[in-house]
């Protein structure tokens, strides 16, 4: 009986020791890995820093201006190129105003046909209908 118990104890102790050894080994390996990862992080951070500096260096305004002058057909923005949204003609206003006779003929027929379609028909039907309506209007022009 004592012999069996002793054996059991011995086996348990041996198992525990092995397990401990295994875990310790595992942890050591992981710590090593962590160290490598940390070193990598530092290396990459350093590289990022160098690259950021290089990016800033390459973006010197004088250099960009010179490159743009040599390779691009662009000029610095002037105040004349700004337009306020409300100064833009409303969408479609141009065709409506310039084609008054044609549009006046198309408009009444367009409105009643489109309105119910938009209200009732499911989404896919909306597209083709609108297109035909527009081409009709285009033909009328």
């Amino acid at each position: 009986m004592t012999r069996v118990a002793g054996l059991l104890f011995f086996l348990t102790a041996a198992g525990a020791a092995l397990f401990l050894f295994y875990i310790k080994q595992e942890v050591r390996e992981m710590e090593e890995e962590l160290g490598i990862v940390h070193r990598d992080i530092l290396r990459h951070q350093e590289a990022i820093r160098v690259l950021k500096t290089e990016w800033s260096y390459l973006n010197q305004p004088a250099r960009i201006a010179d490159l743009a002058a040599r390779h691009l057909d662009l000029r610095p923005l002037t105040a004349r190129q700004f337009v306020r949204l409300e100064d833009l003609p409303p969408r479609g206003a141009r065709s409506a105003s310039s084609e008054v006779p044609a549009a006046s003929g198309a408009a009444p027929t367009l409105a009643p046909t489109l309105a119910p379609t938009l209200a009732k028909a499911p989404a896919p039907r909306k597209g083709p209908r609108k297109d035909t309506a527009l081409t009709e209007a285009g033909n009328a022009r």
Partner: peptide, 8 residues
Amino acid sequence: VVLATSLP
């Protein structure tokens, strides 16, 4: 924009 930095 980076104006001054310390580089290794």
